[in-house]
Structure formats: C-alpha cells, structure tokens
Design a protein around this nucleic acid. Sequence first.
DNA 1: GTCTATAATAAGATAGAC
DNA 2: GTCTATCTTATTATAGAC
Lengths: 196, 196
Amino acid sequence: MGNMKEKIKYVSIDLFFKKGYFATSVSDIARGSGIQKASMYYHYPSKEELLFSILKSTMDDVTAYLKNSISGIRNVEEQMRTAVQSHVRFHLDRQKENFIANSELRGLTQDHYRIIVKKRYEYERIFQNIIQKGGEQGIFVKDDVKILSYAILTLCTSGASWFKPTGRLTVDEIAAIYEKFIINGLKQGQVWSGAT
Amino acid sequence: MGNMKEKIKYVSIDLFFKKGYFATSVSDIARGSGIQKASMYYHYPSKEELLFSILKSTMDDVTAYLKNSISGIRNVEEQMRTAVQSHVRFHLDRQKENFIANSELRGLTQDHYRIIVKKRYEYERIFQNIIQKGGEQGIFVKDDVKILSYAILTLCTSGASWFKPTGRLTVDEIAAIYEKFIINGLKQGQVWSGAT
DNA sequence: GTCTATAATAAGATAGAC
DNA sequence: GTCTATCTTATTATAGAC
C-alpha cells in the first residue's frame, strides 16, 4: 500500500471487474485510491494505459505460471491434466484480472490490442500443442485442435465469472471437476471409439 | 426495414457487439439508423431500455427455441445431444445478440437485471435437469450439476465470441464437435469408470 | 414521427501551484 | 507526488416546432 501506482492498479482491477472499463471513470478510480483524479495522471499517462498495464501483467503472469507448471512433464495426458489445473487455479486465484483480460480488450488502442492478442495467442498455442500431440499419439480425439483448445480454455475461464471464494465449492473441487470433464471429453468415449 | 423501431434495435445490436454498450453513444445509434439522436427517444425511453429490449427478446427466444427442440424426446442422452445442438445453433445464428446477453448485463438497471437473470436461470435449469436425470440413470457422471451445466453452456456460448460465418468451419461442424466433446465429458470414460 | 436546439452533466486530460 | 482549477468535448435526455 506504500506504492500509490500499485494501489491505483489494485483499485482499478476491482472497479473494472465490478462496473466494466467504460463505466468506470477516472474519478471513481481516484476516489477509491484516496487521491484527486489529476494525481492519477502522474502515475499513468491515460486511463487506457492503466487498462493496458493490467492486461499485460495478467497475460505475462498466466503464461509464466502455465509454463512453470508443465515444465518437465513428458506424458501428454499428464501435461493436459496439469495445464487444466494450472489454468483453472490461476483464473480462480486472480479472478478479477482474468475476467477483465477476457472482456475489456475493446478498451485498448489498436497497438495495445495487438500486443495483448499476440500474448493470448501464445498462451493458447501451448494448449493446442498438447491436444495435437495427444491426437497423434492416439490418446485424444482428432477433432479440430483450435476449436478444442477454445472449448477447454473458455470452459475453465468461465469459472472466473461465477466463482465465489466463499461459495459452496473450493478451487480444488472445481479444478478436479473440470480436469475430469475435459480429459473425458478429449479421450475416446465408449460410444465413439473407432468412429471418428 | 419499414419499421424504425426494429431498425434501431438491429443497428444497436451491431454496435453493442462491436464496441460494447457503454462505448456506444446514442449518437452512434442514430447515425447508423439514419435519424437524429433525439428521434431515438420517440421509440425507446432511454438507451438502457433499448439494451433491456434486446436482452429480453434474446432470452425469450433462446428458451423457446430450446424447449421446442427437446420437446417429445424421452431418452436422456438424446435430450442432451439435442439441447447442445440447439444451444450452439441459436448462439451461432444470433451471435451478436447472444454475445451482448452474456457481456452487457451490467448496463441494466437493478429491476431489469433481475428480470434477465431470472430468465437465464430458467434456461440453465433445463440443462441442469437433464444432467441430473442422466446422473440418476447412471449414464452421466455424478459431479456437481450446476458446475457441469455452466461448463457446458459457456463452452458453447463462447463460440459466439470467435465464430465467423465466413470462417473455416460451418455451424454444423462446430455443433458436432461440441456435442461429441460434451457427451464424452458427461459419460464415464474408461479412466474413471467406477471411481467417482 | 422526425427535426433543430439546447439543457444539464460528466467525461478525459492538462496547467501550474505547492 | 499531490493538489486546485480549468479546458474541451461528449454524453444522455428534453422541449417544442413542423
């Protein structure tokens, strides 16, 4: 809390999550941070740069977290299980930022938009590679890799839109359900075995 | 196009989808509709009422479409297959409205918000009932019914955020992939059979 | 049913004092 | 590094003519 720049970011994440980026004014952010709105411009050159700063660090962190989680795992099914766990955990632990990173891209300038979309693309590629390998090894279905990756990612990401830390289920329980559902979905079920 | 009220709605759906509700001004809507912004207020009492009108008709239509699709089907697995197909098709056919219905709820007044959320709850209940029955009959996993329903719904709904009518895959192909993935996910895979 | 004109307000951002 | 004061512009919405 000693760092006002961090405090502004923290307050903004909360407000952007609750009200949305466009519905949040610089006055709102300043009020939440305990400063005047002009003071915000000392720390960030504009409201859009503040949004970009949030999205950038979120994307960098989620990718680092995923890479660290799956590093050293050779078995493809185990890679996918771990990747799903990693994705779910990060998205539930840092729920607000992730929600913003998935809903407020339209608030960015074109240049900033491109940077974030590129980062997201790299993140998705990690999942697509695992699905691809699983298909080649015959342990996963051979459906369209991109569609499957979007399906898996949005499925878990959506948790960030309804999850309540004080709710009925823990992060562990939710992660377990998703992991199971996705692995079942990716593997050949009895009904489909041999018929692709 | 003879009906200006409908044209305003049509134009607004397009703009809310592309720019978002808060980032779209009444001037933008008027410009797109070929009228002056004051004229919009003859058709809708406010910008918020216009948003509400869009969300209300979307929710009513999607529920009617689903109910009609699954009516008469007794087999639970077949019900889920049909429900998934129905959900995917409606969301891809009326992509923009559905995207708005899932992302712009914060633009509503409290009263309108409650009405829409209640409609969405009723829609989700239909899926939850099918999952529940499938669990009781032993053909689906017995995991948390709500979580599974959210997973299934957001998975398909997310299609509305990346689908391009001119893209690589047709609605039929996407629906088939999702149906397969979800049924596989809901059924006991080899790995999990007997271990719940 | 659509127009012009305008009210009332709030927005993002800057200047310059301290 | 934070303040007060202010500029400029855009916003939602209304009044009243046609």
